[in-house]
Design a protein around this nucleic acid. Sequence first.
DNA 1: GACTCCCGCCAAAGC
DNA 2: GCTTTGGCGGGAGTC
Length: 824
Amino acid sequence: LGAQENHSSEPYRNVLKTPLKQAATSPLVLTEIQPDCQPLTTPPKPKEILPADPWTPTSNLKMLISAASPEIRSREQRRELSNNTREVLQAKHCLQEHLSGDEYEKSQPSRKEKSLGLLCHKFLARYPDYPSTAENNFICLDEVAEELNVERRRIYDIVNVLESLHMVSRLAKNRYVWHGRHNLSKTLQALKKVGEENKYTQQIQMIKKREYEHEFDLDGERNEETARSFVSNEHSEMSFVELPGMEFRAASVNSRKDKSLRVMSQKFVMLFLVSTPQIVSLEVAAKILIGEDQLEDLDKSKFKTKIRRLYDIANVLSSLELIKKVHVTEERGRKPAFKWTGPSVLPNIQDKKFEMTSTTCPPPISESITSKEQCSKNLFPSRGKQNFTRHPSLIKLVRSIENDRRMIQSAPTSPVKMSASKQLKNVFLYLFLSMVLTQMYSCIKCSGLPSSPKEMKMKLSGSSLECNLSSSEAASKPEPPRSAALTQPLAVCPPSHSSVSPVILPHPHSGVSYAVYLQPSQAHTVTTYNPGFMLQPLPRANVTGIKSINSNALHKITTVEGDNQAATDDPTKSLTAKERLPIKSETSSQRCLKRSQELQENNLIKRYKSDEESLDTSLTFFPSGYLIPLTQCTHGNKAGFSNKEKAGICSVQHTTYSPAIAGVIPLTASEVKAVNIPAFHITPLNIMLSPTSIAAAPVLSNSCPNSSNSSSAQNPGSAIMNFTLQNIGLIPAGVHVPANPVQHTPVSSHPGNASLRSENANLQEEKPSVSKEPQEPHAVTENFFRTPGGPNTVSPLSANSDGTYRISQGTLYIPQRKLEVSED
DNA sequence: GACTCCCGCCAAAGC
DNA sequence: GCTTTGGCGGGAGTC
């Protein structure tokens, strides 16, 4: 007791006796967050806390007694922590003497009364959400524990979670400072980014998939393999996410960070922030957290421990009203989950750079983010930010394009007013978007849809599309300068509810077309700036050479017939952030430039080559989108179209460019059969199909009659039309315009509908209260491309001799999220 | 019986 | 060498 007394009282008597480490950082923390804060001095110890009192072995006893009886408690209070151990003991004896065992137990507060959530409520009630700097915002753990009548251990649980959100920070031993919610939004933004970079969305999907496989396909060996791959992909352990000025320096944070409640809490929050809907089951969260430790050690006890901790965290987060408990129901029954009820987190345009203590977090990402932001300013300097990412409708996109065009065209003077490079960028971006829409028109029209282009145009009110006929017409239309650039037809996928607008660009020299992704992954509108917008030409030759291709996975995917599991491997690979990032980085920095130059020489950009510098800039502008080579529409492909479609879709100059390839891989039937339903999530453009729209997806099965199995050949135009119409909301999900009724066989009967079932399970889970009605068209998995790393959007395809492509690793994707129709 | 999560041991880190 | 911090898992309360 003597030593304890000296130790506990000395720091309070000696001002500025805080540890050096703290002294070095804490003032920064204070000045950063609370500029008016007093110098960091350890305040004198409150008089009422007498030396021998704090948290000796008798303190528990005292607390026990205090909690046991109001009388005892009041007496305890009257004595003002007299710390008379003898008295405490006497009281204890007295209590026990006067109360029988049962009574004594009954006098104890119930378990609920002692819950961490309630305790956290009490704790939070002590401090304002938004404390002023003038207030005394210090937290003395001893005091708090004392006043809340709990052992300090419990306060640590609360404080650790609050620390993870930067609502408190540690100043010194036993001393914290309360920040309230001032930093919450920044923290959440940072966490969301890190969560995206860690591809938590994909991890969640993979966990779900694995759950399904465990349930329906107990192939232990294969699952183990999957698990191993999962582990190998999860070596990238993430550590505590810090905000500038709030860095942790304490060794404890670093030494125990792996399993720290802080880090766990942050990861848990990240899962919510990257999920759509923002519901995370405990099981999934625990598995992901375990996965980041060591999955091979996964056993029940570890899992249980993780669940315990998650409950601890969840209780605190619930008290903060950031989450609330829900239950999700799936095939295996009801599972506990939590739903995010905190503020929605939008990307921070300012992108104040957050920092991580992690050494494994790939720096290129943050760098690219920074450059993206800079690019954003350059691209549309005069416009405020617009965010269409969450908008499900194409209409606004079109309007936005129109606005952009007006802005560009109605400039009172020549584009010189705006810098040439900026103008060029605008035009360039606009061109892409126009191409998207143009080709969409073509798709719809050529599919024989009753809706006339005019109707479409009305529907897409304000559309900037002037080329409302076929793409060939559009191509021939001498429209300056964007139409002039549009000398070749473009295959297009409806951007609508997908977050991405892929555009197929022909590349005459290489003979390879390119898919340009407009990827509003950062929730910036493409009309202002799309940080996730990048050109990455990938000629066919390079595609097959992508390093990350795993031949085993490829073999599995392409040869294991009816094997759902095959689809699992690739999502696994999609998690290989560490593996892919370097590749992606290399691809982005090197290939992009190189290919971009090719584009300059050969393509529509040629006309703007005079401003080479700006063009280069514009190309490097798009750091995370992709130009993906697409299969050439061989005769077989063409044969798959009606004449009408041919006329409209395939251009005069480039008959190989079929809109069918926007969202469709002309796979051979055997390939599709092998890939199975998950293959419907596989397209060169990564178009995600809702389960209902999958009914139209058989177009994937074969668009090339030359393939080995032409019996399943579909009419690509029809399917694309259906897909397009569904996704732009012109026809409801499940309604298909049949070109060939045989095509619309429900895929649910397909033996490989595992993915579908899994999807449905997910849907249930995410929408526990929503009936299992077919998803709306916009229930297509959303933000599929949102992972900022982007490499998962690359589709390594290897060319077959018949002009089709074989999917290799990296082309299978598990949907990352779904639109929560009812909630959002 | 499963779900929750309190509780406190005890080891690492801090001082 | 003591205190602070916090990982961890037993096991009790609750559903």
